[in-house]
Amino acid sequence: MGNVLIYGEHAGGNIPKATAVAVGAAQQIAAASGGDTILALLGNDLGGVKDAAAQLGATKVVCVESADLEHETADIRTLTMKAVAEATGSDTVVFAATTAGKDIAPRLAAAAEAAIASDVTAVNDDGTFVRPMYAGNVFATVKLESDFKVVSVRTTAFEPVEGAAASASEDLSLSIEKPGNAVEFVKLDATVSDRPVLTEAERVVAGGRGLKSGENFTTVLEPLVDALGAAMGASRAAVDAGYVPNDLQVGQTGKVIAPTLYIGVGISGAIQHLAGMKDSKVIVAINKDADAPIFSVADFGLVADLFEAVPELTEKVKALA
């Protein structure tokens, strides 16, 4: 049977948890097919990332280095991943359902005439996959009707491989011609934060339109975020209003998170928001409207004015430390 290839993300010399989780999902798929798991690393001068990649539990790490792979543009990476799949005898390619994975995976599926399942939440023994639809109101079991398959996996639904032995590493030299109309990377305005990564954090405090301004995010919400050592998230309304940057958006069309503790502050709990945080272990909602839909998924709801409750909570959390 064929091998399972994983698309390895990396930035600034680090591999995100999303990729470690994708390896975990790939292992489940490979267990059914009997193939190996192969982690593909694409980049220009991979350096120390190769060693980090070898710790994730894949059978093998395959590295492709080229100046054309400096940035994560979908056109050249699709061609490269297709060639790596062929060279490694892989018949399934797994991506994490991150923005990078969602950008490249469908393009690869089209290039390989492969069937694709996006945002997969479970791998079944019979080779079918489970994926959410309608903002998580429906979970579909789908069968991919092609020999070569592409999947992207929801990172909150799988676990990294624990205690794996170091993988063998191999350099693969491919001659992929960059298309004449290739996309050019111009710049990345990266969000810099000392806080935990939103999608990896154990605790998340998310703010909504109820915060009323970006300034209130800073003065009212952030002290609680930091007292808890949490990551900060937001509703779409808060992002749209410009209170916080786009990459904090949690939901159907933002990030999907499942921390141990999620605290939603001044968020009504629209279905599109719930789609991104409903799988959190413990959900707390602070909202002055007792009828806000967020209370229907909250383990603990506090009906209160956030401008009073949040500073009080912050002080009392600090006092615990």
Partner: peptide, 19 residues
């Protein structure tokens, strides 16, 4: 190329409480 075998509602969350 993708067949939908079946669909299901999401698992229900147990009801919480107001503090």
């Amino acid at each position: 190329s993708v067949t939908i075998v079946s669909v299901e509602p999401p698992p229900e969350r147990a009801a919480g409480r107001v503090v």
